Simulated assay, not measured.
Amino acid sequence: INLNYTFTLKKVDNTLEFNQYLQNLTQGKKVIIQEIYDQLSTNSIISLSDIFKKYRGSYIQEALNLKEDIFPVIHDLVSNHFFEGEIRAKKAFLFKTKYYFCLDYLFKNILIADKEINTERLYEEKSKLKEIRNDIYNMTLKLKNTIPQIREEIESYLLIDEVDFAKERLKYVLRDSLMEADFLNENIETSFNQELIYINLQATLGAEISQWNKSYSQLQNGLNELNSYLQERIQEKESLKKYSFILDELDTKIYD
């Protein structure tokens, strides 16, 4: 994956990162946050109020407040992609409010990039990449079909004895095919050399580039071989036409 992009991705074990994160907390916060994380591993909804009530008495020397001391840590864990979700309040009896955390995702592993990424721009580049790949595919297919199409067209003229037209048409389509191939090659090279911010086109389109270069390099030889073959067919037709003309003249003289 890293070869295809200008940034480097690193897979991170969030469990190890979480343990590192805990080391920066006070002992009271550490125990409460650890319990929250453990419960989120098996439950999608947990009671923050119950967890706080259970553990705050264990550390009398550390005066903690759920909303002022624990909520900011939870928000920080969310912003650092340990999990996703939100804190919700629910009225209990006698105007008392209980707080819950509703989990959306718990991230056991995450990918970290070595630089900030504009996701909107990245999606735009992926869309552009798809367009370029489709263009290369269509142009490569067009190149592969060039020789069979020329052969079929010229032989169809020879089949109906349009020898002179076939000869002139062959000159034109051979020249036109080479010019079009050069034009397509320039377009593809322009596409390959586009500078994108996040995607490495040369690496991502390596297979397509290789296939195009192969088809493009083989076209000249293929057209030369096709020209030789069709010129022989044209000469055969011209010879047959000449012999047919001679026979017609002989028939005319005999009957005269």
Rank of each mutant, 00 (worst) to 15 (best):
N19P: 00
N2I: 05
Q39L: 14
D256C: 04
L25T: 05
I160G: 04
I112T: 10
Y59H: 01
I60G: 06
L77H: 03
A207C: 02
Y105D: 06
E155C: 10
A63W: 07
F245Y: 12
E86R: 11
F95D: 11
N213M: 05
N185I: 04
E125L: 02
H75V: 05
S79M: 08
N187K: 15
E186C: 08
E232Y: 11
Y21R: 02
I188G: 01
N200L: 00
F71W: 06
L178D: 07
D104K: 10
K90L: 09
Q231E: 14
S217K: 11
S79G: 05
R169T: 13
V173T: 02
V173K: 02
I33A: 07
D176G: 00
F7E: 00
L158Y: 03
Q235C: 06
L66Y: 04
L159G: 09
S228M: 12
I36E: 00
K171P: 04
E152K: 14
T252N: 10
Y157W: 04
I112F: 03
I136D: 00
S127L: 15
Y229K: 11
Q61E: 14
N24K: 15
K53T: 12
T97V: 14
S49Q: 07
E131K: 15
C102W: 11
I136A: 03
I132N: 06
E131L: 13
Q39E: 12
F95K: 09
Y37N: 01
Y172N: 09
L158F: 04
Y55F: 14
L196G: 03
F95E: 10
T190W: 05
Y198S: 05
K90A: 09
V163L: 03
M179S: 15
N185G: 07
E249T: 09
G222C: 08
H75G: 02
N118G: 01
Y21P: 01
E168S: 12
V31M: 08
T15D: 13
E84S: 09
Y229H: 13
L174W: 07
T15S: 14
Q39M: 12
F165N: 09
Y229W: 06
I70K: 05
L170G: 01
K108A: 08
Q39H: 08
L196K: 06
K53F: 12
Y59T: 02
E155T: 15
L158C: 02
I147M: 07
L94Y: 14
K98S: 11
D13F: 07
S79Q: 07
E155H: 11
T252D: 13
T26R: 11
Q149I: 11
S191V: 06
N213E: 04
A92K: 08
H75S: 08
D114G: 06
I188L: 03
A63P: 00
S49M: 01
L219F: 00
Q23K: 15
Q211D: 12
S244Q: 13
F93C: 06
Y216T: 03
D50N: 11
F192H: 05
E189N: 13
L184G: 02
S44P: 01
S239R: 12
T146W: 05
L184E: 08
Y105H: 14
E189T: 13
V173G: 04
E124G: 07
E162N: 10
T140D: 02
L64E: 07
Q23W: 07
R175H: 12
Q34A: 09
I112R: 10
K128C: 08
E155Y: 10
L240E: 13
E168L: 13
N80G: 03
K98T: 12
E162T: 02
F18S: 01
R169G: 04
